[in-house]
Amino acid sequence: MRLDILDRGYRPSTKLLFALIRLFSGHPVPDAAKLVFYRPDFYGAQAKAFTHEAMRGPSAWSVGDRELMAAYVSKLNESAFCIGAHTATATQAYQDGPRVAAVLADLESAPVEEPLRATLRMLGKLTAEGKLGAEDMREVLAAGVSPQQVKDSLAVCAAFNTTDRLADAFGFEVLTPEGFDAGAKYLLKRGYR
């Protein structure tokens, strides 16, 4: 990573944990995981709590839907690490790779439900332009999305606009497909805590 402290600045107990993870998973600890272990009191602890609530907390959106939102937002941000991580996680959550690939290739022609499409469109505009109007939201609500679902999707959008920026600024190393698959399996089993 672009800061040496994020590669080497960990306490001995954390370094031991990283070594054990590498040993048992067969993969190095992803940079996204390392980041939240560095001075966790500053960022990691609160970031994990918010991201976990957004991605795994109570919501009318499925885990697959929320992982797809994370992948879609990351795609718009061109954040290579997060596209790989959340494409893999959405694919495993849905057990449907073509569905995820179709959304990321072309949202408008993808075979997904209209409420999800309208929500992704809204998140895409917010991510690309940084702003939204009431009219954008009326279109989402008219597609059958509840106000609470909109709020839940905005939290996913906030979490991944943060993580995407950190991944690209700090220079997270892109994993192999096997590495992303292993990470996805972990995220579906344990979440973001």
């Binding site: 809204m122 917010l126 991510t127 940084g130 702003k131 939204l132 109007g133 009431a134 954008d136 939201m137 106000p147 909109v150 709020k151 905005l154 939290a155 959008c157 906030a158 979490a159 606009n161 943060t162 920026r165």
Partner: peptide, 12 residues
């Protein structure tokens, strides 16, 4: 990302 979150919630 907080500015985006707030803009989305305000629009809603």
């Amino acid at each position: 990302s907080t500015r985006m979150y707030e803009a989305g919630l305000a629009a809603l």
